[in-house]
Computed example of a mutant assay.
Amino acid sequence: MENTTDTPDAAARVEEHHSGDRVLDTGALRALAHPLRVRIYDILSQYGPQTASSLAEKLGESSGSTSYHLRALAKQDLIQEISDRGTGRERWWERPAGGVSFANPDAMKTPAGRAATQIVMNEFFQNRHDQLMAFIHGGLSGSAEQWQDGSMISTATARLTPEQSKELSVKIMALIDDAVDNYRNQTGEDVRPVTIRADVFPLPELGG
C-alpha cells in the first residue's frame, strides 16, 4: 500500500492542494467580523446550501436579518447565490468550494485588520468549541453506537523541534485533505457532516 503520509510527498501534495486557498483581505475580514455572519458562514461551510428562511430558523433570527447579512457576505464574494436553484423569493446561497485562510499578514498590520481578524477568529473557534462541548455533553450518550465508535476526542503532548512540528502538521493535513477530497459530496442514508479538527502548537513557557 502506498504511504500517503511520506513527508516529502505529503508536503508537496499539501502545498499544491492549498496553493489556491483564498487569504481574506481586510475588506472580507471586516464584512465577516460579525457574530451572526460568522455563524451563517460556518453553517454554509459545514451543512451546505441554505436560504435566508432556513438560516433564520436555525439561528432564531428573522429572515430579514439573515437576508441582510447574506447580502453583506456576498458583496465580498465570501458566499454566492445558486442561480439555478430556488425562486426570486427563496434564494439559495452557498460557500464557494476551496480553502480559506483568516490569517493575513498584511491585514494584521492595521488596527482595523487586527480587530476584524480577532473578531472572526474568536467567533469561529467559539462556535467550534460549542459544537465540541455539545457533543461531549449530549452526543456521547445520545449518538448511535456506530458514531461513538467513529468519533475521536484526543489530546497528547510531545516534545518537538519546529521542524518536527511542521513535519507532523503536514502529515495530518495530508490525511485531512484526502478525506475531504474523497467524501466532500458523498450522500447516503448514514452520511452526516463530520467536523475534523487538528491542533498542533507550542505550549507557553511555565513561569516560576
Rank of each mutant, 00 (worst) to 15 (best):
E61C: 05
G60E: 04
Y68S: 12
R37I: 10
S65E: 00
L44Y: 05
A56D: 06
G64E: 13
A31N: 02
P35H: 15
Y68L: 14
R71I: 09
E61D: 01
L55S: 03
L36S: 14
Y41Q: 05
E57P: 04
L36Y: 03
T66K: 13
E57H: 11
A52H: 05
G48N: 06
G48T: 08
R30V: 07
Q46N: 06
A31F: 01
A28S: 04
G60M: 07
P35R: 15
A52V: 12
E57Y: 07
L59Q: 11
T66R: 06
L44S: 03
A56W: 10
R71T: 14
A52K: 05
L70D: 07
G64K: 10
T51G: 01
L29V: 02
A52Q: 02
Y41M: 09
T51H: 02
D42I: 15
Q46R: 13
Y47S: 09
I40G: 03
D42G: 11
S53Q: 05
H69T: 05
P49L: 05
Q50T: 02
A52Y: 13
S53N: 14
H69F: 07
L59E: 11
G60D: 09
L70H: 00
L55W: 06
L44G: 08
D42T: 15
H69W: 00
L36C: 02
A56S: 15
Y47H: 06
G60C: 08
A52S: 15
H69E: 10
S54H: 10
R37E: 04
G48V: 10
V38H: 06
G48W: 15
P49V: 07
L29R: 08
Q50I: 03
Q46H: 06
G48I: 08
H34S: 09
E61N: 04
H34Q: 12
S54F: 05
I43K: 14
A28Y: 06
L59P: 03
R37P: 00
R39S: 14
L55E: 02
S45G: 09
G48D: 10
